[in-house]
Amino acid sequence: MENNEIVKISGLVKRFPIGGGHFTALDGIDLTFGTGEFSGLVGPSGSGKTTMLNIIGSLDCPSEGTAVVLGNSVGELSHKKAAKLRKESLGFIFQTYNLLPVYTVFENVEFPLLLLDMSAAERKQAVLDALVWVGLTDKVKSRPAQLSGGECQRVAIARAMVKKPQLVLADEPTANLDAANSHNILQTMVRLNEELKTTFIFATHDDKVIKYLKRKISLEDGKVVKDEQK
């Protein structure tokens, strides 16, 4: 792995059993992502974007081939090691925000830091910094049910970024948002990418997101059909 390579995917195949047979979601993918990239996997539904994101995020394993993330071969990681990789180095942003409903904004953002056993003072500072990045310092005590969709997604971004991970995986982050909120969210992520040099990989078919991408990887039927740099 070269120094700036953060993800290296070789001959990646992912099959899912369906009935008596199987469905091939990813079919021989070879890709590399470097540090600080702002890339997107683009394609229609069923093209394999989310599956690839799940494998990079060590939430799923390849059927064939390898996916090496930050030096860890995903297929060979134990549950514990995969969890450690996610805990220390990866951030996730989901289409439906996946905020913990009974927690306040502060507690939601604080959650990843609790898993890292940081001290209360360090946690507090890091959470407040993250909330400044996403402009939600006035919503510290609100619960997700009291926030708009855009605000929820900003909380999710703060939660993904609070531990300053090397790689953030965002699955359709704007799918539930209106245009104004989408742009707001994307501008925030672009800024964080530039300021913190965090690598972002998106899975999207939203044109609003695609406009912001510095690298667009088009998938169709589980295969890379185009890989464009801006």
Binding site: L59, A83, K84, L85, R86, K87, L100, F111, L115, R159
Partner: peptide
């Protein structure tokens, strides 16, 4: 699922 994504083991 969110707990798992954030790095909690099963």
């Amino acid at each position: 699922g969110t707990y798992m994504a954030m790095g909690m083991t099963r």
